[in-house]
Nucleic acid binder design. Structure first.
Lengths: 250, 250
DNA sequence: GCGTGCCATTAACATAGGTTGGATATGCAA
DNA sequence: TTGCATATCCAACCTATGTTAATGGCACGC
């Protein structure tokens, strides 16, 4: 999911309606098996069937779709709190490859156990349904962005998204946040070449919209960046109505 | 959903595991309110909040994402059996606009009623979860296609998808099926201009891969078309493992 | 049967972004 | 400190796709 980690707020455990799915998993499943990976390792291969749901506990991941001819496209970046393999059928193959960008730790829960707990907890089910809805909304948004935006707008959009995701988790300070992706990885996410991504980033820098070095992103004027990227936060929390953008042509 | 209508098979009503969601809705909710629309009408506006889930019973629809500046991108085409507004929170806004391509009839179910029935039916819940997973997989696939493919491949991919969706419902004969979308609508789905879409379609025609006239698509050699489009049926049914496409770069 | 309007088709021209290949920088390991 | 690998940056060139604008065809209503 491009933005699965909904706002992590300080709440009582009882307020299930507002907890994020990863919180819920921790809450309901207690101790899980943990696994660690180094940077640039593959966690899951397109086509793999696994009997587990897993939760990203530490680090950043990249979810990619590969084509028969070898090209590949990044579908989303993962950060702590994101869930993978939520198709609960025992032998459901995954349609994407997940690999690590930084060192990563994941927690694993068996699908059987997962299903059993879900069945007994309507509120947990609802929370997962919601999260799933959010994932779909985000993927739809990203589909739109890839189809509609120019290179600069796409890259700016990605910066907005990564920044906001971290802001919601309290991961920003003075307009700065972590940004571990290389230009090549940004390029794969935006459907551009690495070379053009570089041109684009420099353009954004020249315009004073961002600063990016040593895995650190600084956004001094978020509004301006969002305007350029046509970035609309609405779709993230799903509570606020998104911009009613009229669509002229029918 | 680009391919929400999973194969419609002849099964006993009891075999819930294999029924499609729309079948299930019909099964569990019986009589619904029906509404009809003419071609080129808008059913739902981006930002609307509605208390209903609805099922496309007759006709074709287009789901679009609009941008503040007026541009818009088609996220998926809908055909009978597809569901909309599956976010079951009472006041969840939709992130897209749905409008009709042909005359359309939809069936409507109140979200409250929907939730109540879901809660009492774990198997129904599971079926919906599955469908939701499928939608996400399809949207991911489409994200990848928009990012990776060239114009000809994209258009070919769309033809493959529409053809296969209808084949699964028994809607094809001798390699032909209905195709009600205009070139402008195809263009919006593929992130291309109408002019270039036209060039592309003529190219596909010249190569003998498709015939397209008077809302009718003929695919004489599906394999060849699929090869060009890098189209992989795997992701549709979710049972077969998708092609294990190695992704060279990590 | 004749307009009216949408849709498909062409052509000429403009440009965003891809490709190649190589030069610097930066970080990590020995 | 040196060396190697990875990442960034740069320039010259090329091509796919966008833009604009005009024409022809077909379907539908009058």
């Amino acid at each position: 999911m491009l933005f699965s980690g909904l706002p992590t707020r300080q709440e009582s455990k009882g307020d299930v309606q507002r907890l994020s799915s990863s919180d819920l998993v921790m809450h309901f499943f207690g101790q899980q098996t943990l696994q660690s990976y180094r940077a640039h390792e593959t966690i899951l291969n397109q086509g793999d069937c696994t009997g587990y749901v897993f939760i990203l506990v530490r680090g950043w991941t990249e979810r990619r779709l590969g084509l028969p001819d070898g090209r590949c496209q990044t579908l989303s970046f993962g950060m702590p709190g994101d869930l993978y393999c939520t198709d609960l059928r025992a032998r459901a193959p995954v349609n994407y490859t997940v690999s690590t960008i930084t060192p990563v730790t994941i927690a694993i829960v068996g699908k059987l156990e997962f299903r059993a707990v879900l069945t007994g907890n309507p509120s947990l089910s609802r929370a997962f349904w919601r999260e799933q809805q959010a994932s779909l909304a985000i993927q739809q948004r990203w589909t739109g962005m890839l189809g509609l935006l120019g290179a600069t707008e796409k890259v700016a959009h990605l910066f907005c998204e990564i920044y906001k995701r971290q802001e919601h988790r309290g991961g920003t300070r003075d307009g700065a946040c972590v940004f571990p992706m290389t230009q090549t990885q940004i390029a794969r996410a935006c459907g551009l070449t690495q070379v053009h991504t570089n041109r684009t980033i420099q353009d954004l820098r020249r315009r004073g919209l961002i600063a990016l070095r040593s895995r650190r992103l600084v956004v001094s004027d978020f509004e301006a960046l969002a305007r350029l990227a046509q970035y609309d936060c609405g779709y993230l929390d799903g509570e606020n109505a998104p911009t009613k953008a009229a669509c002229a042509t029918v």
